[in-house]
Every structure is written in C-alpha cells, then in structure tokens.
C-alpha cells in the first residue's frame, strides 16, 4: 500500500486567520511574534508547534518516528534546524524554497515506500517578517509593493506519514527540474516559477498517462495570480486543457481586500492550505484525487543583487482519499 497521511496540523498568523480559509487552520496566533524575542524564534516556534501538533494527533510516540524532514526559507534553514533541536528526531533538512512541503512529502513517501522508515514527520514554515528582513527591507520601512508582488505567509504545516493506517494516501510523485526562463524581478516570482511548474505538470501527465481532468483538484504552491495565469497559458500551449480544477494555494489563502496584491508565497503557503483545507476535503470525501505542485524560486539575496535571473522548480505529489 502507498504511504498514508496519518495526521496533519497547521498554525498561522493573524492575517492568514482573517483570510477565507481562516477556520480551516488548527491554530491561529494573535500576532506574528507570539511573545518570542525575535521573528526568527517565532518562526521556529511555529514549526515546532505544527510538528508537535501533527505528532500528537497521529497518536504516535516520538520513538515511532524514524525521520523528521523539514525546510524553510531562512539562511541555512535555521527555523527547521532549531525545531529539529527541540524535536530530537533523526533529521534531514531540505531546501526547495517554497516547494519544500511537496518535496518533503515526496521524499518522506520514498523513505516509507522504500522501507527505510515506518513513520516520517514532515513540516515546513515561513514567516512574513523573517522573509522580509532577509530578502527585502526592514519591516517598518515605508514603501509600495508592485502589483505582481506576493505576501509571505506566516505559518507552519506538518504531516505525519506512515506505512499503514487510515487516511489519504500519497500515490505518486514527480520531482521537478530547475528551469530558468530569464525572469529577474523578485517582485514577480510567480512568473519565475511558472515554467518549472508547467514542465513538471506536463511530465507528470505524460508519465502517468493522465490529464488535468483526472484530478478533482490541482493546486500549485504559490504561483499567485500572475504565475497561475501564466502556467495555465503554458499548459494550453503544450496542448493540455485545464479547467477550474487547476488553482493555486497562494490565490486561495488571502482575500482580495487584504492588500496582498498577486497572492501569497512562502513554504507555509502550500503547507497550511494542504494540511488544512485540502486534507479536510480529502477526509470528507469531497475530493478523491488531488495533485499538489509545490513551486519554488531558487534565488538568494546575493544572486539577486548580482543580477542573476531566478531559477524555478516544481515538485508534484498525488494524494488520493
């Protein structure tokens, strides 16, 4: 049997809690710092809370978990490393930028399917303020964001994957390749990631002889409005017609009047939408087969300053109720 998702847990900040998916999250913080002494500590706390929540919900003891897989956006993935220090589980740190949730689900499923593990704990985090101060400007700096800019989600999502038990199953995964079509604008990351996501989708459909209509939902990670429209157009040009089943977690999580412009981004974007809303709909039988395509922009502040374009990546996982 394919690996099963035994439990899921999500924690988000207040802005995400006020969004249209607000009721689908397990915990909503009242502010982004949560009594911690730095934004970075708050982000580690988010990830710890999500991972401990998922572990508790699965009913497993930590000694039953063979690996913890985690990643985030900060330099040297410190949020994950510091959470792993608390969790004290055998740990594999992953970096796929905002695609890390789908990547960790794929790698975790491989570990289980290859019988290297009985249970695997996966999780990712992102935090609006830690991302702003690392990638952009101080958080209190006054400026206007371009219309194509996306808002980094504050939150963390975690899943417990297991060999056996009840729950939705991860039945297939397509690991993406890095594609760079020359986009340099870090305020337009959807456009930078759309080619890689589309490439992964095309490869996925060809590999499994499927079409978009074979899925109840195809959710990209954080393409945002610009990237989603571009990806739909690229699919069309590749001769694949997708309908309303193809949407994006970054488009779903905030409301238009929340002033986020092109939507959401960040590791937590796809993580909290999947581990919250999508998991609930899978369990309720509303969705039978879902394709989650994590999207990642693989640049750094240094590469951006040196004028390099933004390489993108997309990782796809199939989840079936």
């Amino acid at each position: 049997m394919p690996p099963v998702i035994l439990a899921s847990y999500t924690v988000v900040g207040p802005k995400e809690g006020q969004g249209p998916l607000g009721t689908t999250f397990d915990e909503v913080w009242t502010d982004n710092i949560h009594g911690e002494k730095s934004w970075e500590r708050a982000e580690s706390k988010l990830l710890e809370t999500a991972m401990q929540g998922a572990l508790k919900q699965s009913g497993l003891n930590p000694e039953h978990v063979d690996y913890m897989l985690a990643g985030d956006l900060l330099n040297q993935i410190i949020s994950s490393n510091f959470s792993a220090r608390t969790m004290a589980l055998p740990y594999i740190g992953l970096y796929g930028a905002c695609s890390t949730m789908a990547l960790s689900m794929a790698v975790g499923s491989m570990l289980i399917d290859g019988q290297f593990a009985r249970n695997v704990l996966v999780g990712v985090s992102s935090h609006h303020e830690t991302a702003e101060r690392q990638y952009r400007l101080p958080t209190e700096q006054g400026m206007q964001r371009p219309m194509s800019a996306q808002w980094t989600v504050t939150g963390a999502g975690s899943l417990v994957l297991g060999q056996s038990g009840a729950g939705p199953r991860i039945t297939a995964a397509t690991i993406g390749r890095v594609l760079d079509y020359g986009e340099k604008d870090t305020a337009n990351m959807g456009a930078a990631m759309a080619p890689a996501v589309t490439d992964t989708l095309v490869n996925h459909f060809n590999d499994l002889n499927r079409k978009p209509q074979d899925y109840d939902l195809i959710a990209s990670g954080d393409l945002g409005m610009v990237g989603l429209a571009l990806s739909q157009e690229l699919l069309k040009r590749s001769g694949i017609t997708s309908g309303p089943e193809f949407t994006d977690c970054g488009v779903l999580i905030y409301d238009k009047n929340q002033d986020v412009h092109a939507g959401a981004s960040g590791c937590a974007c796809s993580a909290v939408v999947f581990a919250g809303n999508i998991m609930q709909r899978l369990k309720a039988g509303e969705l039978k087969r879902v394709l989650l395509v994590g999207s990642g922009a693989l640049h750094s502040p240094t590469s951006q300053q040196q004028g390099e374009s933004i390489p993108g990546i997309g990782h796809a996982v199939v989840i079936e109720a």
């Binding site: 219309m147 079509y181 759309a194 157009e233 092109a262």
Partner: peptide, 12 residues
Amino acid sequence: YQNLSKQFTPKP
C-alpha cells in the same frame, strides 16, 4: 516567455 510574462503581469 519574457513577452508572455509581460502581458500577464499587472501594470503599475
């Protein structure tokens, strides 16, 4: 793709 991306990106 650069042209396509320009078309789809909202103007300031």
